[in-house]
Design a protein around this nucleic acid. Structure first.
Length: 836
RNA sequence: GCAGGGAUAGCCAAGCGGUCAAAGGCGACAGACUCAAAAUCUGUUGGCUUAGUGCCUUCGUAGGUUCGAUUCCUACUCCCUGCACCA
């Protein structure tokens, strides 16, 4: 059986490299064998140490893979293979995030049902993923649009509902006009929809939320338990936005209105209040006289889109009401303003124009009093002459009994003072909002709730799950087509049996991805979301791999979800992903590789020409996996050559090894181990290739097998082929990783090699100088070596390297040819040289 | 504006106190093989020098620490990524 044939399929017409090996046949053959023998299928095995490698499961919206995808998945596969060969019981699954808006939109556009569309995509993508040769356990595959999966979304929804962690409320929410649906806070990126980039507007709607804010503290604190890139942690911290401050009660119209501030030290400098223009109780404060003015402001704000509001300067209007500052009973005006965020803190702020830039601008514009209460140590401010707010530290003035205090100390002191008088209290505020999970779309998990006129909001009974998503719907109607299906809409109230109205909103896709990694552990369970023993064996995910774009979306939601499940007793751990790796983006011609940019190199472009192993090897060697990289069509050929050199070496295996070989091999094993652990794949590959090249004259079979194993992480198909050609009956993918034998590493050989290289360099240099001087090529090279190093300089090897006739003499050789006495120049590690 | 990450020879990309004129790849050039290509192999690829040497100028820009910096510190410029009126 000879699969490698150097002479077949030569293709002269193709301007690309000549295809000398039938890669695609070899790839297919081994992929089929792996599948047939269930090589990568795993089960719970308490005797073996587990390792869970996971890549973020893909959205099957497109029917192709490009080099960005290939890179991403190869990073994981290399790691999974490494761990597997090192004796771990490795769970490495793959699935599909198949619910969601893109499928729905794309399907609509093409006039296909989303289900058909998604399933066709899955078939296609599966085919491509399999062609990568990744060591996925395909028996664990899941697709989130299947009732078997979303059944448990509904189940968990009910559990969260029971716990009060899922609730419905009316709130100003982000609405994407194009998607015709609400968006979570995390999905509105700078006022644009994260998916379609169109304008997001604010709407007052009743929606379902998960109470992620209950977990804000734990979401911050537990970041210390996990090994994630610092920037992702920072992003999460900033997003949660914990800030310590003081809540202070101001009195307006005899009613207490609390506000939140981090600067209670400036309370004596408060000269007005500002309530958010979007505050639900705004109108309570607006007097008859001021109504017109305020309404004008609101109209003005509404006419602007998010972007314009951003650029807008501070705008406001007097409400007509006055507040009483609790610390000194001063009467101050209450304004309504566009720069106060309605749903942070209390939606109202105390304004200290002397010491807050925004307040300063507002005060200047509306000619409100500015009162200095903090001076720096060396200077005294004059409120009239200030050109901007002073926000740094200093000593208090105009602050009654706190005069002279350092403002830092005054923060606590004033808070305490207010607390004693029951006018305020120490408190903590978060930027994090509750997670809005409901979507007004068809293609998602139906929310298992029924509204009954008599009983109110009633959960569907567990035994009646799943609430199936009806397949026959009319996509021509605008809005959510579910709302137009009477059979779906009209449902019996689980409590009283009367006909109620079913919730037609579906869950956003991030609910699916918040626990899919648990389902991989037990994907066929019909009775439960998962078997707890399996999940507690496999989880948490040891190594998670995916893009940084999910820093505050998926990665935050999944952490919350797991914490909630832990509290409800479903799992025993509280962090889902112990280590996170963010792969870098693949660029081509300076732009991110993407279909919309038209700079895509498809998986098949490369695999058809060079085989997928070449693509894998190139993507892993060209640059660190965490860095962005530039795709290079020519660069690929370099990796192609490496594989060809490996094949050639396989035909030069010998029986016997020697200490030099063994030393080099063991050094390489060591280097590869260190590099792989740190995801420094290029280093690992370079050291293997160095090893291959240094034995181009021949290598012992045993050592060759070690090289094969090392590089099999990157080029698994070719390695299986060569492995079996050597007569092995098992799979190299399942073989044991080579162990580095430190005893065999001898730095003497490294030094010898270095000296030889130096000598070669010197000889070439001499040859060049002679050529320059005399115009003649040197023909014969004489090398004079100190006696005990004679064996370090191999005549044949030198002849081959130099392409000249070479003679090696020991300096004490009486018969040596040495007309110019160059032998006298020889030193240990540095031979004398004569050329003629 | 704030936070995080970058800037390395023709290009891509390692290095993160000395062994660095700087790994590896690509490209280019030269040589070997060949009738000739392709493939493969060998060498050169900052400058000037030299029988295997020595010197000079280089790792975004300008300074600093150090016996010594591509590697550490400071400022600046440019690029990317995230957040963005959060009180």
């Amino acid at each position: 059986m000879v699969d490698i044939n150097f002479n077949n399929t030569r293709n002269q017409k193709d301007s690309g490299p000549v295809k000398i090996v039938d890669f695609s046949r070899i790839e297919k053959k081994w992929q089929e064998k792996w599948e047939k023998k269930k090589c990568f299928e795993v089960d719970v095995n308490s005797k073996k140490k587990k390792y869970y490698v996971l890549e973020m499961y893909p959205y099957p919206s497109a029917s192709f893979l490009h080099m960005g995808h290939v890179r991403n998945y190869t990073i994981g596969d290399v790691y999974a293979r490494y761990k597997r060969m090192n004796g771990f019981n490795v769970l490495y699954p793959m699935g599909f995030d198949s619910f969601g808006l893109p499928a729905e939109t794309a399907a609509k556009k093409e006039g296909i049902h989303p289900k058909k569309y998604a399933e066709a995509s899955i078939v296609k993508i599966t085919e491509y993923l399999k062609a990568l040769g990744n060591s996925y356990d395909w028996s664990k595959v899941i697709a989130s649009h299947e009732p078997d999966y979303y059944h448990w979304n509904q189940f968990f929804f009910l559990k969260l509902f029971e716990k009060g962690l899922a609730y419905r409320k009316k709130a100003p929410v982000n609405w994407c006009e194009k998607c015709q649906s609400v968006l979570a806070n995390e999905e509105s990126e700078g006022g644009k929809c994260w998916r379609c980039q169109s304008e997001v507007v604010t709407k007052e709607l009743e929606q379902w939320f998960f109470k992620i804010t209950d977990y804000a503290d734990r979401l911050i604190d537990d970041l210390s338990k996990i090994d994630w890139p610092e920037r992702i942690k920072v992003m999460q911290k900033n997003w949660i936005g914990k800030s310590y401050g003081t809540e202070i009660d101001f009195t307006i119209n005899n009613e207490k209105w609390p506000i939140f501030t981090t600067r209670p030290d400036t309370i004596y400098g408060v000269t007005f209040m500002v309530i958010s223009a979007q505050h639900p109780r705004l109108m309570e404060l607006v007097t008859k006289e001021q109504k017109k003015e305020v309404e004008l402001l609101l109209k003005k704000i509404k006419s602007k889109n998010e972007k314009e509001i951003e650029e807008l300067e501070k705008e406001g209007a007097f409400t007509g009401s006055y507040a009483i500052n609790p610390i000194n009973n001063q009467k101050i005006p209450v304004y309504c303003g566009n720069f106060v965020v309605a749903d942070y803190g209390c939606g109202m702020v105390m304004a200290v124009p002397a010491h807050d830039e925004r307040d300063y601008q507002f005060a200047k514009k509306y000619k409100i009093l500015i009162k200095v209460v903090i001076n720096p140590d060396t200077y005294e401010f004059n409120a009239e002459k200030m050109s901007r707010a002073y926000t740094a530290d200093g000593r208090l003035v105009n602050s009654e009994k706190f005069n002279g205090w350092s403002n830092r100390e005054a923060i606590d002191a004033i808070t305490e003072h207010l607390s004693k008088k029951k006018l305020g209290k120490k408190t903590v505020n978060f930027k994090l909002r509750d997670w809005l999970v409901s979507r007004q779309r068809y293609w998602g998990t139906p929310i298992p709730i029924i509204y009954c006129d008599k009983c109110g909001t009633v959960p569907v009974a567990e035994k009646n799950l799943p609430v199936l998503l009806p397949e026959k719907v009319d996509f021509k109607v605008s809005g959510n087509p579910l709302a137009t299906i009477p059979e779906f809409l009209n449902a019996k109230c689980p409590k009283c049996g009367k006909i109620g109205r079913r919730e037609t909103d579906t869950m956003g896709g991030f609910v699916d991805s918040s626990w899919y990694f648990l389902r991989f552990c037990d994907n066929k369970n019909k009775n439960k979301p998962f078997n707890q023993d399996s999940v507690n064996y496999w989880m948490p995910v040891d190594q998670y791999i995916g893009g940084a774009e999910h820093a505050v979306m998926h990665l935050m939601y999944a952490r919350f979800f797991i914490k909630a499940l832990k509290d409800m007793g479903y799992v025993k751990f509280d962090e889902p992903f112990m280590k996170l790796f963010n792969q870098g983006i693949v660029y081509k011609n300076g732009a991110k590789m993407s279909k919309s940019k038209g700079n895509v190199v498809f998986q098949t472009d490369i695999s058809n020409k060079y085989g997928i192993d070449t693509a894998r090897l190139f993507l892993m060697v060209v640059s660190s996996p965490d860095k962005q990289m530039e795709w290079s069509d020519q660069g690929v050929e370099g990796s192609f050559r490496i594989i060809n050199r490996l094949i050639r070496l396989s035909e030069k295996t010998t029986k016997e090894s020697d200490p030099r070989q063994d030393s080099k091999i063991n050094i390489t094993i060591k280097k590869v181990n260190e590099s792989i652990e740190k995801f420094e794949y290029p280093k690992a590959i370079i050291s293997i290739v160095e090893c291959i090249d240094s034995f181009s004259e021949g290598i012992s079979r045993k050592n060759f097998e070690i090289i094969l194993k090392l590089i099999s992480l990157f080029t698994p198909h070719m390695c299986e082929e060569l492995w079996s050609k050597l007569g092995n009956k098992d799979f190299i993918s399942l073989s044991d990783w080579p162990v580095c034998d430190e005893k065999k590493i001898d730095s003497k050989f490294e030094e010898m090699e270095r000296n030889l290289e130096k000598a070669v360099g010197d000889i070439i240099n001499v040859l060049r100088i002679i050529k320059d001087k005399t115009g003649k090529d040197g023909e014969k090279v004489y090398v004079y070596v100190v006696p005990f190093e004679v064996n370090n300089y191999n005549t044949d090897l030198l002849q081959k390297r130099l392409g000249k006739e070479v003679h090696v003499f020991a300096v004490n050789d009486k018969n040596k040819y040495d007309p110019e006495g160059k032998a006298g120049k020889a030193k240990p590690g540095k031979p004398g040289i004569f050329v003629e």
